[in-house]
Design a protein around this nucleic acid. Structure first.
Lengths: 339, 339
DNA sequence: TGCGCAATTACAAACGTTTGCAACTCAGCT
DNA sequence: AGCTGAGTTGCAAACGTTTGTAATTGCGCA
């Protein structure tokens, strides 16, 4: 018995024809006699022949694979992004390889370099919050490998980008809180080195100043992560102080952390404190009170990123360089509306 | 200017040596003169030379890539499994390619076949709940490609497996409820065609009969999914009937669905109804009441699966065929303990 | 001068494909 | 009989590597 998978050679030998004939027959090339074509195809089917992926890639210099680099996998938003990417990729005959940097700059660099040579036809990346140096991405671009950024982008590099209108989202959320009659509104956000958080906060400030409201330094909190525990701890003193009547959190988890504090301090939400989160995680519908939040269209973002990337792969000469901005929508639930 | 990535050939040409010399120099082979070696390495560094992944794979017939097939990505358990797999894989020089079947049999087949020829060195799979036919996995094994199942396994195929002791977990959970003084205990589970759900229910039955307690057909509910909404709808009548004082759910989401029903019906949890979930999702700590649950060591499962797979890849002749059984632990929180 | 040996390097095959081109067969025509 | 051309098929190169073996060089020594 022969070991390993069936190759074109095996079929050729068994049929006493050359490999080129087999190759052509499988491609249904009319140059080869119908009889031969059928014989080849039959045998290929019998042996479950499947073209060797690596050989194909080497020949065509195409892997039909897209790389994704994201900071976290265990994350509803990123999972949705991946799903969007996958759907568009599969539909266009591409596979996908995902590398999760676990928010580590070092891992991000390793992953990027691992993908750099002939492994993927292009890359989609969301930079980690640790990342401040972009050399690894530059190297990617230098090799003419298509690159698309999404969500947490890097401004320094000339590449198409898909982002959320975080400024507008922050603005909408805060304006909604103001509309509910709140006047002392706090902001609890994620790492401020990320552009997305800068934008969300800028939107918050804009809405306040537009309404003639003031904020205080103590009402603005930056957390190292967007996690629940981080948010709970850091917002504890602020919430307990009872100085504020509204709170916009840049993450649903931060929002829930704050609400926990409020409950513990005997405050009611939304009665004493109105809260709006960010991202529309599924927990927001289950939590009590259910959480008002800003939508974050991850699926659409993934779809769009994949679309831009594949467009770039198919037209290598044409320098695409658009930035797609997706809109966020306010989702009103219990946590922000006192009746 | 030259296009595309630098190859060994480019370096060879520039240095007026042969490609083999360059190849050996880069491997630091003492056969080539130190001087030459250094010159080559220097140039390689200057041009950011990186070996072409596909070419390497073709030559060695190794992709140094492991395939993962899972039913869902947006799932805390699977995300942890992936993390475990990744950690072990990276540590051993392997990359990972993930295919999410989205619980679709069809997609699972497509994904498996896409990985089948020279794309990965081995595969780890958790079958979807739609899957009843295992031909695609058989084909994998027939080609001597290492395969490891985890969590939702397929008994028909001879391959190493990593599973949770679901029977014991179901037993422990139910026993805990009995220990809390509950005597009329219901079971709300996921799709019963999956072995894991059969086992969890069997554990439930064992604990009941051991304690001399009875159950009723109406107290046993099988949901098509393990989702919140499914669980809420299907357990509504049962919970409203107020016949039961304890409930073991095969998923945290099903548990929360049931608790929502109880709250709506004016019942207190755990006062009127004690609930134990399954999987230890993070929402369980945030929810009110916090949720008692069974741990599901996803990280360890992934780690072990990767370990078995790589062992198999490294020793192709040695037919490894062990089944690793991991234990689940009871995590007691508020939802099951009335004081 | 010529031989052998060590040191260094180059050549070529191989991995599994695809594809341009050459080669072969055979029938039909002059 | 010989030429043409259509219909088939095979050869060989190429993709970027690695590696066994052959080739080249220069030196020491008889």
């Amino acid at each position: 018995m022969k070991k390993g998978p069936v190759t074109i050679k095996d079929i050729a030998k068994e049929l006493n024809v050359s490999v080129s004939t087999v190759s052509r027959a499988l491609a249904d090339n009319p140059l080869v006699k119908l009889e031969t074509r059928n014989a080849v195809k039959e045998l290929a089917k019998k042996y479950h022949y499947r073209p060797h992926f690596t050989a194909l890639s080497l020949r065509s210099n195409k892997t039909k694979t897209l790389g994704i680099i994201i900071p976290q996998l265990v994350h509803e938003f990123f999972s949705m992004v991946i799903r969007g990417i996958e759907d568009h990729a599969y539909a266009n005959g591409y596979n996908v390889i995902i590398s999760s940097s676990h928010e580590s700059y070092e891992r991000e660099v390793i992953d990027t370099k691992a993908l750099i040579n002939g492994r993927v036809d292009g890359l989609m990346a969301c930079i980690s919050k640790e990342t401040n140096d972009y050399e690894h991405f530059k190297e990617f671009v230098d090799r003419n490998l298509p690159l698309v950024f999404f969500d947490c982008i890097c401004d320094e590099i000339d590449a198409p980008k898909v982002v959320l209108d975080d400024f507008d989202a922050g603005y909408q959320a805060t304006k909604h809180l103001i509309g509910q009659g709140n006047t002392r509104i706090a902001y609890v956000g994620g790492p401020i080195n990320l552009i997305i958080n800068q934008d969300r906060m800028a939107g918050y400030n804009k809405a306040l100043s537009e309404a003639g409201l003031n904020t205080k330094d103590e009402w603005i909190i930056h957390c190292d992560s967007g996690d629940y525990e981080d948010g709970r701890k850091r917002s504890e003193r602020l919430v307990n102080s009872k100085e504020i009547d509204g709170l916009f959190a840049a993450t649903d988890m931060l929002a829930i952390g704050a609400i926990k504090n409020a409950k513990k301090a005997g405050l009611t939400v939304p009665g004493d404190l109105s809260v709006v989160g960010f991202s529309n995680w599924s927990i927001g519908t289950l939590y009590e009170p259910s959480l008002s939040t800003m939508s974050q269209p991850g699926y659409e973002m993934g779809l769009k990123a994949a679309e831009l990337l594949i467009k770039q792969i198919d037209n290598p000469d044409q320098m695409v360089n658009e930035t797609v901005v997706l809109k966020s929508e306010l989702i009103v639930r219990e946590s922000s509306v006192s009746d």
